[in-house]
């Protein structure tokens, strides 16, 4: 069994007017030491999915159905006290815009120490300090900066300190939500290299959330493309880049500006490789139908089905041969 198994996970928000589904029947699994990237436009449900795995949804959000199994534990039915022990010690989350969440009037080192000691009350102060020093070495911040205030750090340093904090308890799984979005390309590149190296060295499983497919491609073994609450394409990184099938994935890639111009998809005209249909997922029509250049009558009358292109590459679209 994989370290993490997500089955049919459906998440909704209740508002005054309606109950809106924000993530719809999401399925995936993740092995120890592997990384999966979730990409998609703003509002497609990426953060919602990450938060639900840790049971940290806002009060009007709830899991409608589905299962999350982590290391054999059924996370959604775990008692709160046990869930608390899983959080951060076994699954750490780097929240979107977390680097702006350091308490401005408390030294960063003290904030990390406090977190370590709350989760491990038996550890002595000296041991905890030692641990912070090692973490700082790992994320390459000089040890003499540990007890600076947040404003004395640059954005990149603040974000590296957040990564240090996430690593403090040697988690088995890290969920990183847009960990580099606010940073410039140079700092972003450094942090991505750092995350990748640490993930490999410590054999951590990683869920990496971003709206930037280029960033995800630099870090992750696997890619899941999300559109309006649904995963619409999932596969190994090379498969998704070399044979992107879903029209949204193709649009995402062919509008990606690289330094040499627009990214070019290799198989130019065939968005419909042979594939075997899998089970139909939903009763609703495809969410991309209003923008899709390949939308057909079939797309307007029947819900799309999951298609297997290879055993590791699948697509939710009616387009295959």
């Amino acid at each position: 069994m994989a370290l993490l198994e997500v089955e049919n996970l459906t998440i909704a928000y209740k508002t005054r007017r309606e109950t809106a589904i924000a993530a719809d029947r999401v399925n995936f699994s993740l092995e120890r030491g592997r990384s999966v990237g979730i990409v998609g436009e703003s509002g497609c449900g990426k953060t919602t999915l990450g938060m639900a795995l840790l049971r940290l949804l806002p009060s009007n959000g709830f899991v409608k159905k589905g299962r999350v199994t982590f290391d054999g534990m059924d996370l959604l039915s775990l008692p709160d006290t046990r869930m608390q022990r899983v959080r951060w010690k076994r699954i750490a989350m780097i929240f979107q815009a977390a680097m702006n969440a350091w308490n401005p009037v408390q030294r960063i080192g003290d904030q990390i120490l406090e977190a370590i000691r709350t989760h491990d009350p038996k550890i002595t102060k000296a041991e905890a300090v030692k641990q912070v020093e090692q973490l700082y070495e790992l994320v390459e911040i000089p040890a003499d900066r540990i007890f600076d205030f947040p404003h004395q750090y640059s954005g990149g340093m603040k974000q590296r300190a957040i990564i240090a904090m996430a690593l403090a308890c040697s988690p088995d799984l890290i969920i990183a939500d847009e960990p580099t979005t606010a940073l410039d390309v140079i700092v972003q590149d450094q942090i991505l290299q750092k995350i990748k190296a640490i993930q490999k060295e410590k054999n951590i499983a990683l869920i990496f959330i971003s709206h930037d497919i280029g960033v995800v491609a630099g870090v992750c073994h696997e890619i899941m493309v999300m559109y309006r609450g649904k995963i619409v394409e999932a596969g190994r990184r090379e498969e998704v880049f070399e044979v992107p099938v879903h029209p949204y994935t193709r649009a995402l890639l062919s509008s990606y500006l690289t330094i040499d111009g627009v990214f070019e998809i290799r198989d130019k005209q065939s968005p419909a490789p042979p594939c075997t249909p899998a089970e139909p997922l939903s009763k609703e029509l495809c969410g991309y139908v209003h923008l899709c250049p390949h939308a057909s009558e079939a797309c307007r009358s029947r819900p799309p089905q999951w298609r297997e292109i290879t055993p590791t590459h699948k697509v939710l679209c009616s387009l295959c041969r």
Partner: peptide
């Protein structure tokens, strides 16, 4: 500027751009 960067800093910016080197184009 992009094809013939004249400063180390510009070169660093160019090198930090995401590239898809794993794709066999």
């Amino acid at each position: 500027v992009i094809n013939n960067p004249g400063s180390d800093y510009t070169r660093a910016l160019i090198n930090a751009q995401p590239r898809f080197s794993f794709v066999n184009q």
